[in-house]
Nucleic acid binder design. Sequence first.
DNA 1: GTCTATATTGCGATAGAC
DNA 2: GTCTATCGCAATATAGAC
Lengths: 200, 200
Amino acid sequence: MIKTTTQENLIEIATQLFATKGFAAVSVRELTDAAHINVSAISYHFNGKEGLYQAVLKEQLAPILKALQFVKSKHTLSPIDRLTLYADQIARIHNQRPFLARFINSESITPTSFGGPVIETHLSQVYQFIQATLQEGIDHGEFQADLDVNYAAISLVGSLNFYFIAKPLIQKFIRLTNDDNAEYTAHAFRIYLHGILTQV
Amino acid sequence: MIKTTTQENLIEIATQLFATKGFAAVSVRELTDAAHINVSAISYHFNGKEGLYQAVLKEQLAPILKALQFVKSKHTLSPIDRLTLYADQIARIHNQRPFLARFINSESITPTSFGGPVIETHLSQVYQFIQATLQEGIDHGEFQADLDVNYAAISLVGSLNFYFIAKPLIQKFIRLTNDDNAEYTAHAFRIYLHGILTQV
DNA sequence: GTCTATATTGCGATAGAC
DNA sequence: GTCTATCGCAATATAGAC
């Protein structure tokens, strides 16, 4: 029997509900009913519904920058290997946090005053890393010289992450024989890499 | 001076507000204030807030199946040319309806009882077309034999559509010198196609 | 730290006058 | 077809007992 505090319990429940229904569509009563606690606990522990959402968001986003720092620290790797490592990390993070993509997606499209800036900072760093790595690969002659690094960076992020965003819907009409996230990202990245290489 | 009916005016305002804030976060008063009409007009004309949303959704989704039918009808085209034509259509549709990606995205992740099934039907057909075309290309020896058509279809849709979903956020930290949607999709599709071809 | 009870606000919908 | 006025309800938040 694992002991969990009221705070931890609330964050876990809130992560699921906010992710699947959206911030505005979840009421504090729905949250506290699901957590089998009293309504007033949210205000007491998190200073209101927004405070709880902020706590959830903070906890969800923690691994992103950490992974990016890890990949960046591998100076000795070639651009190809660094991008490959990044794709691996993406799969790993989504495995750990199945709801992360939904929060990022939701905040990207309808940013909240608190979550918006956080997401913006995170994604900005991700894009900068990808662009810089693509440019490095172009300069080294590994990637095609006429690549537009802006567009190509968006393509990569889209190709890798769209799967995790749309997964609930996709599973309704595509039979995914294997639910392994790493398998998808590996396949998508293979196509992408093959698409930007100068030679195969 | 263009004459617009109250219905048309409401749908236009509602398209913008629902797309940018989400269904649950928009109140009927906000809608009618923005449209400079009375609150009761929504119930009168659309039988309530949900009815208005349905009308917006229906109007937004109309071009998707039409475009798909058009591409499918080009029997004589090769798999490569049919996919290329499809990518062109995607750009064209998003040009016409700048908010479409947000509605599809929103309904994919947090489906409403009315919108969910509609989106599901639409996207299911898109995936089936892409999968079938990929398989045809594999059988003809144009595409790599070891492609997983399920994963590869998701990659393509993600690569092409993610840009339109995340555009509001991306524009905050990527300088897009040219706002032309067709330019992005062409570039993304070029990478993708190059990535799945057997020879270049 | 958790509860009950309640204050307050804003929601969607509609009856009825014009 | 459009308005005012209002109903009934559900939202978040909180004061105060335990």
